[in-house]
Structures are given as structure tokens and as C-alpha cells.
Simulated assay, not measured.
Amino acid sequence: MDTAAVTGLSFRDATDADVDALVALVESAYRGESSRAGWTTEADILEGQRTDPEGVLEVIRSPGSRLLTVERDGRIVACCQLEHRGGHAYFGMFAVSPALQGAGLGKVIISEAERQARTGWGADEMHMTVITAREDLIAWYERRGYRRTGRTSPFPYGDERFGVPRRAGLEFELLVKELG
């Protein structure tokens, strides 16, 4: 892990004033040519938007939901959604600036998200859904202790709020990790 890349991080809940910066961050990590600078790009399987200001505001303002914002030197460099769902928490909208990917930031952020879900909500599991075509990303989560469940749900074809698929047969798989 590149310790220089993960020092000086601060974590806070997003506010309405962060919406534009967070949309730009998420889009840069997953869509278009800029996303190819990192390894989390979905540009080969999806085009169009990954999120929009309304979706980000919904996460920020929803009861039992947080958009954990990560800053370094006063600049937003990463984010993730945490949602309290009874005995477990849901983890989503995870984005790290493409220029900073591969340096260990993701490991630090997901660990902090798990800690906050466990200590803040008493969550005993973290759940997330990942597009099954993203084998490299699923493998990364497995190395962090997440397990595949085999439980899938269809991609919302026709709902351009989530992107425009470039291929048929996309689906999400539920990944789960017990929080100790």
C-alpha cells in the first residue's frame, strides 16, 4: 500500500453543497474516457450517466442513509454510500478518483465504512451489489472478505438513470461480508 496516498484523509458526511463535486467524481470513476485512467471503469459495458444530482441528493437526505465523503488537502477524492437496513448496512456509490486508484485508498475507505456501519448502527453484515460482468471488481471485494451469494437481480434496462448498457445479459450479484 502506498502510505503517502492514504495519509491526510478526512471523512465526513456529504452536504447539499457537495453534490456537483460528488457527481463529477462518480462519473469520472466509472464512465467515459476519464474513467480509463483507473481500473474501476465501466465504460466498456455501460455508457451514459452513472448518477445524477437528484440521485446524490436523495442519498444525502434519506433517513438512515449517509454519503461518506473522503477529502485530502480540502479536495474530495472518494465517496461511498452507507444505508442502514435493519441488521445490515448497504454499501454503494463507491468511487475513488481515477488518478488515485491502485494506491490503497479503496482499502482504507471500505474499512472505515465497515467500521462506521458496525459502530454507528450495530450492523453485523455489509451488503452490496456488483455487476457480474465486473469479475476484477468482484475479486477485489472477495480479497476484502466479501463473499458471492449467487443471488442476482436484473440490470434496470431502459432506465437511463443507471446508464445505457452496451451488451445484453447484465445483472447484479449480492455480495455480503460479516462485520466482526
Rank of each mutant, 00 (worst) to 15 (best):
H88G: 12
R118T: 11
Y146F: 15
E160W: 05
Y90T: 03
E58R: 15
Y141A: 04
C80W: 05
Y90K: 05
A113M: 09
R144V: 00
E33D: 10
R134K: 15
D52V: 01
R151Y: 09
H127F: 12
R66H: 12
Y157I: 00
E47T: 14
Y157S: 03
Y90L: 09
G145Y: 06
I110A: 10
R118D: 00
A29K: 11
T129N: 14
R66F: 01
L82T: 08
L25S: 01
L137M: 13
A168V: 06
K107R: 15
R161S: 14
M128H: 08
F94Q: 09
A5M: 04
I109D: 11
Y30A: 05
E173V: 14
A5T: 00
L82A: 06
A37W: 05
Y146C: 03
D124W: 08
A24F: 07
G169Q: 08
E112M: 10
E112I: 11
C79R: 01
A14L: 06
L46V: 06
Y30G: 06
S111E: 15
W140M: 13
I60S: 05
M128F: 09
R166M: 12
W121N: 06
R36T: 09
S153E: 14
L9Q: 05
L137S: 02
C80G: 10
R166V: 01
E173A: 09
S62N: 10
P165I: 14
E178P: 02
A168I: 00
E173Q: 11
H88T: 08
T129V: 14
E125M: 08
R12K: 10
R147I: 12
S111P: 00
T119H: 08
P63V: 09
V56L: 04
S28R: 12
F94R: 05
C79T: 14
R50T: 06
G150Q: 10
E160H: 13
F94K: 07
V59N: 04
E160C: 00
T129G: 13
L179M: 10
Y30C: 05
H88I: 02
A29D: 07
Y157M: 02
A117I: 02
P154H: 00
